[in-house]
Design a binder for these strands. Sequence first.
DNA 1: AGCGCTCGCGGTAACGTTCCCATGCGTGGA
DNA 2: TCCACGCATGGGAACGTTACCGCGAGCGCT
Lengths: 352, 352
Amino acid sequence: MVERSRSRRPTIIDVAERAGVSKSTAARALAGSSNITDETRERVVKAAAAVGYERNHLAVGMRSGRSGMLGLVIPDIANPFWAEVARGAQDRAARAGASLLVFSSDWDPEAEATHLRTLRRARVDGAIVNPVSDSFDDLDRFGMPCVFIGSSAERYPDISSVGSDITQAVRLGLDHLMSKGHVAPALILGPKSRLARARFLRAVHEHFVERDLDPGVLAVEDGEYTVEGGREAMRRLLAQPRVGHLAVFAANDMMALGAMMAVRDAGLDCPRDVSILGFDGIPSGEFAWPGLTTIAKPGRDIGERAVEGLFDEIEHRPEHRRIYMPCRLLERGSLADLSVAAPQRIAGAGRN
Amino acid sequence: MVERSRSRRPTIIDVAERAGVSKSTAARALAGSSNITDETRERVVKAAAAVGYERNHLAVGMRSGRSGMLGLVIPDIANPFWAEVARGAQDRAARAGASLLVFSSDWDPEAEATHLRTLRRARVDGAIVNPVSDSFDDLDRFGMPCVFIGSSAERYPDISSVGSDITQAVRLGLDHLMSKGHVAPALILGPKSRLARARFLRAVHEHFVERDLDPGVLAVEDGEYTVEGGREAMRRLLAQPRVGHLAVFAANDMMALGAMMAVRDAGLDCPRDVSILGFDGIPSGEFAWPGLTTIAKPGRDIGERAVEGLFDEIEHRPEHRRIYMPCRLLERGSLADLSVAAPQRIAGAGRN
DNA sequence: AGCGCTCGCGGTAACGTTCCCATGCGTGGA
DNA sequence: TCCACGCATGGGAACGTTACCGCGAGCGCT
């Protein structure tokens, strides 16, 4: 049974005294390292258990310069994608015996700066950051080993980063759309200021050019990365004159769900009249009706790889690698199959 | 401009030297405390800015016994409800200048114990825990100020806790159901082992008894707190003979969404044939079709209050309070209104 | 048998901070 | 004019840990 003093947490000195050795010996025994008699080690370990000793990581950190803590600064932990990233990072860190300090920046550069300062003061060994601003000059604001997550990381060639492979994801999506007979999907994209938008668009263009198709014919609508943004974008799309079935590739699941609402608002049916493909893989897509077919980003894997990259950075193995994690297709019900079901419907579909 | 040494982070001694004072004076100046000439203080502050000094919280923690960090152990940060709790806790902690160490236990008591040990070693000032097991004996495993979250906290009278007010939530739900003409809803509850289930059921009974109704007539199905659990429970419910419209009150939104799927699987329509009321307020409910009417738990508020309670605990203001946060109704589209549309249907409704 | 090496252990310094106490100077009152 | 008090500052210890160095004993090799 553990004797727990009411007043003070036991230190290694308490352990040493109880074991009848010096604190150096006790430390060595507990570190499991070299030059210790098995008998002495056992005595120390027993004493440690008896007094309920638990190594003080603050003191260890002070002495070694390693706190065993990592920072994670993401836009919002309550956002399902970022929660997945956090979960992956947390699991990977825990497996390496590290802890994770989590902060949400709410897409606010000032909050981000505050949190980074807090992390530096806490002497975290390094930080994983999704930079909220697409452009900021002063990389000194980090002042510790860092790994970036997301597309905006591209702007900082000196910092290694982990993100999803947007190019692969877009190709996956377009191929799937084509396999279902949707040759020229409309695009619902994010704000022009965001780097991810350019990446998405570039991938679409490449894919079309490779197939000798003209990407110029594609309708494009921009919006905020929100349900409302997608809803409005879809409204504008539906207001345009068109022939036949309408297929939409949204750059974000929230927008896709918003688009789905707009379709319903307009008295149309998804997937009968409009097909919608999302991008993210958030859980809500599963419960929508129809289920949202989407390209899922591997949020958890991204978090894990970011931690691994951060360890590399901390150990001064500066691979400075830019890692793009592959995405995968989540096929649910929001895409009509124009290719097989009813060829005659292709002509007649979407009479509106 | 900040001079940042390649090698070493500046300490208070660097600041003191640059300002031409002793480290005691520098510390006093930076602490903003007593007995310092304005001129000296200014010189120190300038020197600190010049060398880019940032107080080492590890050292502060060692010296003061306060690390400025709090622990949060929840089942799964990737679960939307817990992510909300984490967000609230994080914001409240940040407002008090504290950082949050987040861990996911995955409903595994062993993982929970490991994380608590890690938190103790990190010398967090306290921890917020959702105890995964409904019963565990050894409260010593905490060994630091603690606040519990959730129903299972009820078993530990010595530890203050924060949770949602299940009684109020159930009444709110039942009142709303009755106002829509659903007098005897079927219940989809969690596993019998969970304390929350008993709380829920007790609240239902009280509510019925107060109205001189017999709670014995209510159909009850149990299941895991998952989509699949809800789906199966609903399947069993639909297999029972019944007359008229079926109303269901699920103890959890995931189960409610699963139930909605089962309704669709059976070729029925929600809310035309079956009304479903959920409990949690997860975002996915908004995107389901129809939108899930539900009782929303104030996850964020719970996280905030838990941190406040933890501060009380740390400051030895042992209020030992049991706080129940009120829930609110989120009205969407999954409930049929039998009271106005077709009064004659009420007679036939919910006889089962 | 003697020398040297290895091994087990103890002592001490150092990490960066804050707090307590001492010191010295200036000022006001008797 | 002298003493006492207050205030700004400096010096040192302590928080708990680990790394380094040194010492003594034992053992093996020449």
